[in-house]
Write a protein that binds this DNA or RNA. Sequence first.
RNA 1: GCGAGGGUAGCUAAGUCAGGAAAAAGCGGCGGACUCAAGAUCCGCUCCCGUAGGGGUCCGUGGGUUCAAAUCCCUCCCCUCGCACCA
Length: 985
Amino acid sequence: MAIYAAIRQAEKSSIGVILGRGTTTTIMEYDPQELEARWRERWSETGRYEADPDADADDATFVTVPYPYPSGGMHIGHARTYTVPDVYARYRRQQGDNVLFPIAWHVTGTPIIGAVERLKKREEKQLSVLTDTYNVPEETLPDLETPMGWARYFIEEHYKKGMQSLGLSVDWRREFTTNNERYSKFIEWQYRTLHERGRLEKGLHPVKFCTNEEQPVTTHDLLEGETAEFQEYTLVRFGWDRDGDDIVVPMATLRPETVHGVTNAYIDPEATYVVAEVDGETWFVSEYAAAKLEYQAHDVDVLETVEGAELVGKTVENPVTGDDVLVLPASFVDADNATGVVMSVPAHSPDDYVALQEAKADTDYLESFGIDPADVADIEPIPILDIDSEDGTYGEIPAQSAVENDGIESSGDPALEKATKNLYNKEFHAGRLKEFYGEYAGELVEEVRDDFKADGIEAGQFDVMQEFSEEVVCRCGGDVVVAEQDTWFLSYDDEDWKRIAHDVADGLDAIPDNTRDEYHHTIDWLNGWPCIRNYGLGTRLPWDDQFVIEPLSDSTIYMAYYTIAHRLQEIPTEELTQDFFDTLFYGPDAADEVDDRALDLREEWDYWYPVDYRFSGNDLITNHLTFYQFHHGELFDEAQWPQGIVIMGMGLLEGQKMSSSKGHVVLPGEAIDEYGADTVRFFLLNSAEPWQDYDWRDDLVGSVSDQLERFWNRAQDIISDPGPDEKPELETIDRWLLSKLQDTVRDVTTAMDESETRSASQAAFYNFEEDLRWYRRRTELDRPAAKWTLRTVLETRLRLLAPFIPFMTNELHEQLTGTPAEDAPWPEPDDAFEDETVELEERQVERLTEDVRDIIDVTDSDPETIRVYVAADWKRDVFETVVENGDNVGAIMGQVMQNPDLREKGNAVNDLVQDLVDQTRGRDETTLRAQLELDETATYERAADFLAREFDADVVVFAEDDPDITDPADRASKAIPFRPAIHLE
RNA sequence: GCGAGGGUAGCUAAGUCAGGAAAAAGCGGCGGACUCAAGAUCCGCUCCCGUAGGGGUCCGUGGGUUCAAAUCCCUCCCCUCGCACCA
């Protein structure tokens, strides 16, 4: 049975063929699984991609990609992220560089901890992701119940396996995780150094804080409000004289500049409020607000709990204008939001305008609180700004105009919210403050709001309070509030640090080049970044171990760590001191005690650094990639700054976003099992340029698989019958194909230098397949010259394609030449084979073929004879004149008409010149020169056999002025240069 | 709102930076060859009209510059992503 199976296998993988010269050889069938496994093993056994400093190599090239975060499995989107740098690395290797492409694992922060917690609780959604999406065996689940167990599983079973299956040319000796003691020593060095250099600052920072669990929470921990934003409210400190006590009534607003337009205030009479001591003052706020203020670093001591009604009907004093305003009752006030007391600006807020109208109307309600309706009736909107606008949409009181224009009748009208939003927007961008704003009079709100607010705070009129834009609830069910916490910031807001970062960005090869502006923009926009957390995996802050350095902050210069990671293992952790790393990165003069081992490592660091290209997703531009530039700028000399960054786009799956929780993912392992790694790689690299979004579509991947198999089979035909070793006499068509090959080499190289993997693979594969198709159709393939040509072409293409499909190309190139493609040098264009004229000749034959086919199709005929008429010599002379004079028709005519023979032909010449000018306009000089070289008659005569075969007809070529011409339909005179006349019969 | 990218055939898209025959390539569809058949492969066709290689329309919208605009400039409309302390 076993023997039978072996024979079957042998039959399957090799097919005996009888060759023309009577010898038998074997052709291998394309079996990606078998051949890829073989190459993987070979790479691993020989340590093919382990890169060490080497003085003989042309150049050291260091490419990196952000290390994966193994909080879940690897999907096909990740596969592309890591394959793009691999293709570049392989390209540089063939160019003769010594290339380092390392990888490590980011195991820092909270996501993995959260995931483990959800697993331990056996949450259904979590179990489904693990067992259904990522195929984790049931019995393995307990191994995942610790953070490192979890990480280890996905590293080993997903990422590493996936990367190795894909054939990534990674130096695996250098892998590490960030939750590792030696790495921590490195990060400690980094943060001590930043601290010494004054790049860390202590301060308060708003965080999402669960009031139930009494701890900060991340977006992942939320049940509701994932999209909630922090909003900083201005608190306008109104004053209330409560039986002789001065009490502050802070009213929250997002539009502090409207303080001059306040006519009254609102409070919810039925909600619970408190009188509390806040930082030594007495405040009146909602009960809920008092609790929040305490979280926001205020000392709060509740003295008395009262109903909102307590303040109703009282007057409070506007701290800016000194005016007294009346507090009205209103059920629409939300005591849960901000302070629970709001000021009313009816001239500029449609909400307030409608509320005031309704309050005036409901006299019974006012009287029930002891308020005289006449006092309310007297309240009039106070306009405080004018809106720049050409039309008269808004009158003196914009809120009134908005309400009336939209026909809003009551506060229940849904249009009110929209009107409010529109007006707020309009007033923000086009509102100019009135004259009583002093130094801000006439200014746009947009320009001065922040300054106005700062002035108010300075003058003791305003305070601030943080609030969410929507309700936020923790997974545990607890309310989440904004808390102010002590923290350390990376001072990305320092102007001098920003300047350094700008310099880094300026010196960078940013691909695509519009990303450079995005880096500059991000650098300008960044504020201080809180770089520590209360909990999570990773490195503790060296001088305060209750804090841990957060993930984006422990991954800014780790590329340097790759250069020495494998050799650091030999050094005991406790010896990795500040001095050690100072010596390593800054040299012997920088340390008090110089460690020779550090000096030794310094050489390797020096050898590889800087990073030549970092490949990364476009979502990291606004954080990681910019931090990367800040930190390199600060910590290292200019020579070590990042040399280039290539941005990568996002992946879709059948037009939809991938989502592991919905199971809408393709795992690389499954795709590779089905199609083979070369197909997966080729699809990922060829379907879009790296920075463009791409779409994994099964039908397209299947088609790539077919294309590669066809390529393999054709290659096998050539390998089994390679033709002569010495170059035989070549025909024009052979020289044409070889000339096309040189164009292809040039195109692919140019594209690869720009990391344009799509253009490169498109040119090397599909575009050249077109040329081959024409070649096969055009000539006899069993000529020795054709065999030699096809073999030469195959060898060059295998090298061009080696970065993309390394398994197949290595195998074929080795079969053909004895050397794997990756060990062969990158092809260079060979002048000897470049021939513009031959390419043009062939273009003419192609056109003639198309024209004949066109005529046959349109006339639905089946000609016996095809007659081709080449333009007469005088027409060629005119063409020459056109080439010499460009598109100046007047000049051409002037010159042509000098010739009496031509003058005789009159209008015919005029028409011809017009045609030829149209034809040559915009053509480059080289092409035109080559056209002058071209012998049309000879070209068509050479192609006559081919045309005869194509159309199963006799083919005769005449010159237009041939005395022996056969021209039954009087066509010959229609010929113009490069556009022969045709007659079918 | 701010910042970035985009709108070209039934679909994915190239062409735009450096203006000069619009539509490369792939997918899908149609027809043919091969085959008992299917698949694979190979050859055509795939915006509209056409019994001679032609003509017409056309690059989100509307203008402008130019001998010439998908391409440069301006207006407007629509789509995607980011706007943070999270990888």
